[in-house]
Design a protein around this nucleic acid. Sequence first.
RNA 1: GCCCGCAUGGCGGAACUGGUAGACGCGGACGACUCAAAAUCGUCAGCCGCAAGGCGUGGGGGUUCGAUUCCCUCUGCGGGCACCA
Length: 863
Amino acid sequence: MAERYNAKDSEPHWQAVWAERDIYRTRNDDPRPKYYVLEMFPYPSGRIHMGHVRNYAMGDVVARYKRARGFNVLHPMGWDAFGLPAENAAMQNKVNPREWTYANIATMRAQLQSMGLSLDWSREIATCDPAYYKHQQRMFLDFLKAGLVARRTAKVNWDPVDHTVLANEQVIDGRGWRSGALVEQRELTQWFLKITDFAQDLTDRLDTLDRWPEKVRLMQKNWIGRSEGLEVRFALESAPTGAASEVKVYTTRPDTLFGAKFLAISIDHPLAKVLAGDEAASGLRAFIEECRRIGTAQEAIDTADKLGFDTGLRVRHPLDPSWTLPVYVANFVLMEYGTGAVFGCPAHDQRDLDFANKYGLGNTPVVCPPDQDPASFVVTDTAYDGDGRMIHSRFLDGMTTDAAFAAVADRLEAETLDGTAVAQRKVQFRLRDWGISRQRYWGCPIPVIHCDACGVVPVPVADLPVTLPEEVSFDVPGNPLERDAAWRTISCPTCGAAARRETDTMDTFVDSSWYYARFTAPWLDDAPTDPKTADHWLAVDQYIGGIEHAILHLLYSRFFMRAMRETGWAGIDEPFAGLFTQGMVVHETYKDASGAWVQPAEIRLASEDGTRKAFHVKTGAALSIGPIEKMSKSKKNVVDPDDIIASYGADTARWFMLSDSPPERDVIWTEEGVQGASRFVQRVWRLANEAAEHQGSDGPTDLGVRKAAHKALSAVGEDIERLRFNRCVAHAYELANAIQEALNATTKPGRPALLEATGILVQIIAPMMPHLAEACWAVLGRDGLVAEAAWPAVEAGLLVEDSVTLPVQVNGRKRADVTVPTDADAAMVEAAVLSLDAVQRALDGKAPRKVIVIPRRIVNVVA
RNA sequence: GCCCGCAUGGCGGAACUGGUAGACGCGGACGACUCAAAAUCGUCAGCCGCAAGGCGUGGGGGUUCGAUUCCCUCUGCGGGCACCA
């Protein structure tokens, strides 16, 4: 009798063997076809959590499987190591952010290594390492030279808790993505990466990313927000001094131009500023102030009423100069989108209708819905924004909305005002440039110098990296770099005069926008990448991570790859060919009688009267079982991977993470489920030992167990390719059941057949439970390591049966089964079916009208 | 408000491009082994019904010889965007 499998001894042993033989090191000059599998690298927060275990277990299955399939697999790991938590820790615990970060990295690296992941640790990178970020600074300078960087004053999102600026993508529901603080709008001079230069390409190429989840592509598409419209010039009847003589308006609905009732401009529109500058315009100034007061907090915008201020100015209608419209300054018009001015067509835009109704501007419907009578169609409280036929629109009457769009665009593009076209077709995007300035210490310094004489001067490449000062204090809020006079002060590289360093650091999303490219040659000292090597490995064949990066990291990386191509650091533009977004790890919550959360480690579960009950381990007190939620410290429903690995082993944790739910869905962590996984570990170990000891020549059950093995092998291969790990697990269980059954049978299979089947079982589970597989492989007497073994070939002949049992339906209702040769033709099957008693009984004397035979599936007799 | 997605036993889920719904696991019941327990092995189990049989994939309708799968509609849940002109 074999002893119980002891993961605690076995796992470190095999990890040492792998490390000693260095089998996961990847060579760039390996001639085999490449496969790059990557999981989103972690932020070194302190300890890994179950989400990491799930993510990295999935990636490891793919890496190990592809290796067995003969690919040269790149599977690296690193650390997204800059960021605010290090500064917060510094403030709270008086530790240096660098020391804090590197200590966390050491802890987490050991944790990941205890999982037995097949990672090439020789390529490990940390983004806070000057050896990494100096290349990032180099690329920033290249981008600057290539015109992909802008410095400008803009309204930005200010997080008052973290004391820093946030990009639009980092504001969730009006709050900072990290601090949760209500974001304010501030006008600041900032560095921007010009992601909008690629807006069209970023949206177009989404269609080619056929191995991305549809959901993510759609989210990015909506975020980029491409729209086609017309930019129309409205001439002012009389322009105030100092202002332009016209107002430009961007519209996606030029077809509704005859329904226009007013023009509205943003409070930040140049015309509004000119008007507000007038001595007498105190009313307008007060209005703008009022809007600003309401407008700073995002939350207020959601509930704010439409407010307008009549300027008294009028503009000429572009299609009829004798027709004039009033010009309002309105709080709902955004300066950042389009031209900062809109024309209001109340009948066909709800927002315009609300505004018009409030200020008594009326409405004229110009699009008649298909189911309405043009003579009687009116709009009162609900705008109609659908398609239809044009009415009350002069030369457009009777046209479809699409035709009217084209007709208006054609006419206004042909007409001129002061010598140039009245309008032109334009494409607009919702996407804004990526503001990367952060007023924080623990980030990559932006490598520029501010000189009073020369302006903004790039740091010479030879002077890179611009490193962070070692000694920092966080006694006062704000950016320590700004207070560090010694660090800040520098002479101008151009004129030599006293100058100062840029004290903003880069958004940490910059760090993670190119790490996948750095992994291809992380040892390079004089360049971010070797472009040939980068192009060899990229795109990443399979990228795996959380859905929360659907826009942020994944969009930034797509931009960065393009910027790297423009500056010669790579030749491709899409970094991730295959993307998979995994679900979260969730867990039940528990509360004691006082309503305090209790963590799972302190829980004992029991079944009483058929219902699950929870008790406190120490006090024995009954606890209430609450809803299943994402693991979080606040709800205390967290399970520590270290605890699980210590008590069950890494293989059990990995197996359970892959087993219960489809990988894209949330998985519920349960104690029972882990125990089930643990039982299976022991079961495989027992089967391997029994098989190794099993004697006997060929037996009658040989074919059965071999068929089961090859069927499972074939299915698992297919399912790993499609990342359906839960099905792989099910197939492994089925094969184990079949082997068990063969061993229990009175006439047992022969030794060779049993060893073959068990060997296949071991290889099937190897990508998921590599330590156990290695131990079983040795027990079975196989050569070398299963981690280096080739994936076994499926014997196709074993997948087909000689005969099949088909269900027989009569009028769609199952009445019998029929067993026929697999290659039987329809006529033979039909004859066999009609001779069945059950079928004749069901037909009840009626003649069959039709017999439908779906080969190897089903037979349906229609009477 | 707009745009997506999802809904299957007590639970997690499976079902290839329309072809036996409920694989596999968890939980459950029973049996074997044991002085006993654990572990292990085996048997059973969608629901109603003694049975024959009937009903069953959120509700209603449709297409089809046949629908968890396709179409329409309603309900519920989840996600994304949200003054974007």
